[in-house]
């Protein structure tokens, strides 16, 4: 094989990738810096002045600081559902990987089904109304947990299968009860895959649009994705504000990307290949 990096091919690839993948983001940023008049032109030009700050202020304060509410809601939603996901999925993955019973086939089938089958929306709404969780943030938390479980369980089960069973046994001989074995021995060892899980699922929940749209109607509970969707019609003519909004909600995934790129890639491929 060639040892020297192919420079020619590299330059072409960098140029093309910049055109295809970076220009749209540059467009978002540039538009967010513009004032209303210039933004309306929808062109790829340098901003006339620095209007980012006033745009942000306007986006954030619109509709009675709805953006702030939305960020708080999205944060609660993400943190709560991912926390529950991690603990519950790890528990299932642990027992599923360790104990072979005749139920395993059925359980694995249900997990795969959950990866494939789209949720039945209206019956879910009907059910949520029945148990008083429709339109409630904690209801949506549970929904996100339910929909995220199959992926997380598959990740955990695959990882737990690589932890030697002798560790559990050593702990049992040392006098550990099942609860101790899981929380003192297994869960700490799952840390790498837990980070992956946290990162992948947080991005998914934070960016989720469909489920809040169905299960969390009303402005009081809006999440950031819903807010953006609502602003789309409201800021129909104020593209500077619309793109400022997009820029704001892209920051959390960007931070995640910068700090956890490796984990996301590892997790998504591991989960995908196993699934």
């Amino acid at each position: 094989m060639k040892s020297r990096p192919s420079i020619f091919l590299g330059i072409i690839a960098i140029l093309v990738s910049a055109l295809v993948f970076l220009v749209p983001f540059a467009f978002i940023i540039l538009t967010a810096f513009k004032n209303k008049q210039q933004a309306t032109l929808l062109d790829f030009s340098w901003p006339d002045g620095f209007h980012l700050w006033s745009n942000i202020v306007e986006v954030v304060t619109t509709r009675n600081w709805m953006m702030v509410t939305a960020f708080i809601n999205s944060t609660i939603l993400t943190v709560a559902s991912v926390t529950l996901l991690v603990v519950f999925a790890a528990m299932v993955g642990f027992v599923l990987a360790r104990r072979k019973t005749r139920w395993n086939g059925l359980i694995e089938f249900l997990i795969l089904a959950g990866l494939m089958i789209p949720p039945a929306v209206v019956p879910t709404i009907w059910l949520l109304q029945g148990i008083g969780l429709f339109g409630k943030l904690h209801g949506l938390v549970l929904i996100e947990v339910a929909y995220g479980l199959p992926f997380s369980i598959i990740l955990y089960r695959a990882f737990i299968a690589t932890i030697p069973r002798e560790l559990d046994e050593a702990a049992i001989i040392d006098g550990a009860r099942p609860f101790d074995v899981f929380f003192r021995i297994i869960l700490p060892l799952l840390w790498p895959v837990t980070v992956t899980n946290i990162v992948v699922q947080s991005v998914g929940v934070f960016n989720d649009f469909t489920n809040p749209l169905y299960y969390l109607p009303g402005n009081a509970n809006a999440t950031v994705q819903l807010t953006l969707y609502n602003f789309q019609s409201q800021f129909n003519t104020s593209y500077n504000l619309l793109f400022t909004n997009i820029l704001l909600i892209t920051i959390p995934p960007l931070l995640v990307f910068l700090f956890f790129n490796r984990h996301i890639v590892a997790g998504m491929t591991a989960g995908a290949v196993k699934g």
């Binding site: 529950l84 603990v87 519950f88 999925a89 528990m91 299932v92 642990f94 027992v95 360790r98 104990r99 359980i107 249900l110 959950g114 089958i117 949720p119 039945a120 209206v122 019956p123 879910t124 009907w126 059910l127 949520l128 148990i131 549970l142 929904i143 947990v145 339910a146 929909y147 479980l149 369980i153 559990d168 049992i172 099942p178 074995v181 899981f182």
Partner: peptide, 25 residues
């Protein structure tokens, strides 16, 4: 050492909020 009740929280949430609506549909 691998208690069945470890399935319980996940099974409850998944069963009620995903499986039940799917069957109801």
């Amino acid at each position: 050492p691998y208690p069945g009740w470890f399935f319980l929280p996940a099974a409850l949430i998944y069963g009620v909020l995903f499986l039940a609506p799917t069957f109801a549909s």
